[in-house]
């Protein structure tokens, strides 16, 4: 009896890393990856100079307040910065103005998302879309799932319309980099 008890303890101890790894795996979800990417895109995009009047002007990421990405995004960007700029996550309500937003994430399948995307047209805002939508509804960057992994597409024409310049390194790791659609 006693021996069986010890065996159980050893097995349990051996299982701890596995369980931890499992827990971690559980934490790394598609949403959290997307939240991370959203945040890191700021490193490889060039905004017009007037967008950041000062060196410490924060980078503002706007997301609909109802989106599932919000908790992960807030967690990841809590202490982060992009090129020394603090990160601010702006939670958007339907009809909010997009003033001061630099990166806008929307689910293109939703109506509110389409509205926000429309509002961002012509503004120097990196539009990042998600969802299985036709190309013409995609933002400058568009998340896709490939082989179970989160990837993204880069739409240079869209970026150009938004007066943004995507970094070469970003384009190289994007799934495709068409000149426009």
């Amino acid at each position: 009896m006693k021996r069986g008890k010890w065996i159980c303890v050893v097995i349990l101890i051996g299982l701890i890393p596995m369980l931890a790894s499992l827990a971690h795996a559980q934490q790394v979800t598609a949403t959290s990856v997307k939240a991370t990417y959203l945040y890191k895109f700021g490193l490889y995009v060039e905004w017009p100079s007037e967008t950041f009047p000062q060196a410490r002007t924060p980078l503002v990421i706007g997301v609909p307040e109802t989106d599932s990405i919000v908790p992960d995004l807030l967690a990841i960007t809590a202490d982060g910065n992009i090129k020394g700029r603090p990160i601010i996550v702006k939670l958007l309500k339907p009809g909010d103005r997009l003033n001061g937003v630099h990166i806008l994430y929307i689910d293109a399948l939703t109506e509110s998302g389409r509205t926000l995307l429309g509002a961002a047209q012509g503004l120097p805002i990196l539009t990042v879309t998600d969802g299985d939508v036709p190309d013409w509804r995609k933002g400058a960057l568009h998340f896709v799932i490939e082989n179970g992994r989160v990837r993204f597409e880069a739409w240079l024409a869209v970026a150009a319309r938004q007066r943004l310049q995507l970094g070469t390194q970003l384009i190289k790791v994007a799934l495709n980099a068409p000149g426009g659609s």
Binding site: Y37, L43, R149, F152
Partner: peptide, 15 residues
């Protein structure tokens, strides 16, 4: 390192 930083960042092993 510089070239492959995005690959690491965006998990693009292929790249």
């Amino acid at each position: 390192g510089h070239t492959n930083a995005p690959a690491l960042l965006f998990h693009d092993e292929k790249y």
